[in-house]
Amino acid sequence: MTASWLPNAYRDGKDRSVKVLITIGQPELQVNIQGRTVPWRPLQPNHAIERVRIIVALGTPLPSKFLRSVAADNDERRLALGFTSKNLRRGQQIHFQPSGVSFGGSPSELWGWDWQRLTAGNRPVETLVVENEAIVYETAEYIRWTSFLRRFEEVAGPILDKILTVVDAATMSLEYGDRFVFEGRPIDARPDFLLANISALLPENAASGGSLWHVHRGWFEELEGHKVLINQNLDAQDSKSPDRGTIRSVQVLTKTELRSRGEQLEYEVLKEKLASMHERSKEIFKSVLSEGMQAQVGIRGETNGQS
């Protein structure tokens, strides 16, 4: 066990240093505040991932007849994969564009459908959404990248492969939603024990845990010849618990969005790009975490909780 003193820079110049105890190998970062040990912990025992989502946006809307055919052709496979809930999406779609608002389709037109795999309490843990302009796969049961990708291919692969023979993909996004929970009073939830260099971006009241805060950032970069939009949102959030009252947590949403250069992005090409987007997402996520929390979620060394 190691201990270090982290000075806290306040505008009045007073030293309010707080001792931080980092216990390697346990799923928490312990903070000693006035003699009390208070931990930040990842949402899961060995990683912080709350959900992972893949979105493929289409360059041209799919016709209603095609959507209906794909749904019927895959219904037996849906049940075999464990998706017991199926919902059709009908009605007019509203499009917000710089030129104004437009409406597409008739009120009864089919423009999509979704599958959901539910827990015993009817909570969705895995979802596939197929709409005329996008395909979305999301899961709350992430273990590691290889198993996630294998499941994505099993669930969405055959449908996406067929769709991309009809229309082209415009963009593909990979989103990681990570969450860290503070076990003490929200007013003590200093984010600088969790996130690197965060205090420089926040006012004093937020940096000390006294108020909620959010930091959003984004930029473009090149990835294997494609333009990629990077978005990362850091949000302090409060929720209510019958046992503990208000619970403070921090959500880290990391998104990489690959954009087509005008060429046809076939299914096999998209799968190859996903691996690179995953690696880049890990680098960006790691860059915002403190060294202690990097160790807790397994990304400080060669192994990775998202690997």
Rank of each mutant, 00 (worst) to 15 (best):
N233F: 03
T254H: 04
E221S: 10
G262E: 12
Q296C: 01
K282M: 13
A72V: 05
E257M: 09
M293A: 02
G305D: 02
Q93S: 08
T254D: 04
G104S: 00
G82N: 11
E133G: 04
N87W: 04
A72S: 08
H95A: 11
T165E: 10
L223H: 12
T37M: 10
I163L: 08
S147R: 04
V31C: 05
G104D: 07
I163V: 15
E133Y: 14
S208R: 05
A140L: 09
S290T: 15
A3K: 08
V297F: 07
R190M: 02
L289Y: 01
K240I: 13
L202N: 02
P45A: 00
Q237Y: 07
L110E: 06
A170G: 07
R261D: 15
T60F: 01
P61I: 04
R190P: 00
L212P: 03
G105K: 03
D12I: 02
W219L: 09
I143E: 07
S260L: 08
Q34S: 15
Q34N: 15
S307G: 12
K240Y: 13
G112C: 01
T254L: 01
P39M: 11
N74L: 05
S287I: 00
F285I: 06
P242K: 14
E224N: 15
N197E: 14
V215I: 11
K162E: 15
V228R: 04
N205T: 10
K19R: 09
P39C: 06
E183N: 12
F152C: 08
R179E: 07
V20C: 00
R117D: 11
S147Q: 06
E50S: 09
D12T: 10
A236F: 11
L258I: 13
A48I: 02
G305T: 03
N46A: 01
N132H: 15
L128R: 06
V38R: 12
E153K: 11
M277A: 02
M277Y: 09
I163E: 09
E131K: 10
V167T: 12
S64Q: 05
P186A: 04
R280Y: 13
L212D: 14
P45D: 00
N32V: 13
Y137L: 13
A120S: 11
Y142C: 00
K65S: 13
L223T: 10
I187T: 13
V101N: 02
Q26P: 02
E154K: 10
N197Q: 13
N233L: 12
L234R: 08
G298A: 03
W111A: 05
G104N: 06
V56L: 09
E76K: 07
